[in-house]
Design a protein around this nucleic acid. Sequence first.
DNA 1: GATAGCCGGGG
DNA 2: GTGTACGGCTATC
Length: 826
Amino acid sequence: MSRTSASAATVEKDAEPQGSMSIEGVILDIDYAAINGKVVIRVTVKGLDGKTYDLMDDDFKPYFYFVPSGEADSDSILKMSTNDMGRKITPVKVEEDEKSFFGRPTKLFRVYMETPSDIPKFSSYMMRYGKCYEYDIPFSRRYGIDKDVTPLHVYRFSASKTPDYIKLNGMSFLNEIGELNLNTLWFDIEVYNPLEVPRENVDPIIMLSYKYVSGGKEGEGVITFKKIDRPFVEVVKDETALINRFVEIVNQHDIDVISGYNSANFDIRYMIARAKALGIDFNLSRGYGDTRIERHGLVDKVKIGGRVHVDMYLVIKFVSVVGAAEHLLKLNSYTLKNVYEAISDDKKISVEKKSIWKLWDGSIEDLELLAEYNLNDSYALMKVYNTFMPIMIELSRTTGNVLSDVSVSTTGQLVEYLLMRYARRYNEVIPNKPSEYEIEDRLKNPIIGAYVKTPDPGIYEHLAIFDFRGLYPSIIISHNIDPSTLCTDCKDYFESPTGARFDKNRKGISPMILELLINQRKEVKKAYKKDPNNIFLGSRSQALKITANSFYGYLGYARSRWYSRDCASSVTAWGRQYIAKTIEEAEKAGLKVIYGDTDSIVVLLGNKTDEEALAFMRAFNASLPGAMELELEDFFVRAVFVGKKHEKDPAGAKKKYAMLSTSGRIKIRGFELVRRDWSRIARDTQRNVLEAILKEGSAEKAANIVKEVVQRLRSGTVPLGELAISTQLRKSIDKYDSKSPELSAAKKAVEAGVKSKDEVEHAVISYVITSHGGSVSDKAELEEMAKDYDADYYINSQVMPAVMKILKELNYNEDELKNLGKQKKL
DNA sequence: GATAGCCGGGG
DNA sequence: GTGTACGGCTATC
């Protein structure tokens, strides 16, 4: 290492090193740039020497595969061309190749194009002459697949200096490491918001806080342009200077990872918009590239050239969905405050978002509070990052996705990339993404889940939930379940309870990868036991589990390249047999199973102790094959189950329950109304009803709460603030074809001169349904304009839908709750 | 019964 | 950008 890092360390930015270089480091990111009209892959490497390198591979060309339906040879394909806005698009090279396609040997042509963007254009033209494959794989991912490289593990890179850039000539795997010393910065902006929703072209960024670690040093600060007498505050001239100063700090500390909270959707987006409005450049990139926002499926992804952006809000949602964050189990809303307070003993400094602009316009004390709040947000973010990022890092290493992709991906996308890498390694054609038509078709025919036992709706006490998540991976492995092993005429096969057959003599890619993941996890767990403070081992174990557990979902995910109904339904069918066994064993141990489905059971402990329940779990686990493991999710004091199995949604039952854990927190699933487009009275009443049931165990008390609310509503005395419903208009009011209450309220406000058109554009409309008018929209008025309210609307369309989800299954009917409310009044 | 539109996080 | 969202819900037609 001394030789290589010594030579790497001599490479200064301004120096002109001669000849070849050898660099040891980890891959932070892979993207591409056009340099002198040439498409070049950039591998951003963090050297073990602490420096960062842009290594450019200019020898990698975009390509796709073509299987002609008739006769064709390389020369004839090379001569083909199509037009794109007057530009001729034609291959630059064509090679013959042979690959396996779902187990069948297939001859195909590899068609190279000049630029990545020509691939979709030319392949869609070629589809009229045959079948095309691998035309929908983003160029930088293609590179990662073909080079078979894993980010964040140590490689030795050989490179050489050219006049334009450092050229990457090759890389070889060296070793795995745990902790990465990445220069990391956490930040948060505050924005002037007199209309509540800040307007990008008008409302300035007034403060920006940051914390960083870089090269072992730490720092923090708040940048603003009003004088605030606090040691951490740096006062600059104006908003432009604030933005520029931030870019300067990022450069000065050579930041590798920039992290925010909801920063893709807000902070970075807002900074880009403000820079545009101010007419200044805003670019956080290092080396090539700009700072922009790309759509990445469900979420927006921030792309910063040469650096990694991580939006912790997306990370939090990810780890919550996959169940990798016990701290967050009971959260219904993932605000930074909620998340921070769930992982720490501190409270976060809290400020009402609506009044941030007032603090800015207020007293010296107000300004100081705002600055402290701003800095505290970056601090809280850093804590949240340090708690949850190790899992993301290990997921990157496990699946091969670059770090900036992990947190914006679903588990299905992570698994898909892993499968694509293995497909390439085993010379398998990567199947195409399904068409929208196919997706629709798949969605219409959902895979039958392994539904076992529906709960009788009601209130239960003293329970435990056990989670059985290793079940499906081990079923896939032990029966060699894979789209490529499905067979009708093979001799040796596993036959699933659905009748599907899986060839025993040809190993499928999914079972093979799963086996590797599970064996790795065994090793990691062993090492972790010896070194329990090593969070990287703990996180790696989690990452391996998350990845393994995602394979089944991927088989049945409608957008999957390797979707297979037969495979997915075979997995669940076999799963039913195992869960039945689990239930049987639990009951033998004296635990009543009130509910169970594909991968979890809820047991009534009765007079058994928690320790006895754990003893059952351990004994049962000992009887299972290695990969399978029943785990405890939590113990609960009380629970209300109201979910009901539905013909159309057999899994629906598991989604509707509320539980009070032994630690006193409430976990609500399936009927949350923690949304601003429900009135506070509906949200509060639902919450009060659940709390009455969970904390006092009484459905009657809950019903009385509803009756009182109905009575209060009828009496006309409920303050309008409790009745306001907030919905944001996403476009200007003239651009809607449809009618809706929020739109109607906004239009009336404009007509009455209460609001200008500008003020309601993209604004959150807070409205009340009044008693005047026909349809709901006719009755909608801005909260500040409303004089009364429509009690029937709030009873029938707000409170009742919210509470009946719970009380209906506890044998209360709507009329009873409403009529009794009336009687009481009489 | 189908369709349009919004929420989530942030300020 | 070798691209284009999820699942649930309401109001409207």
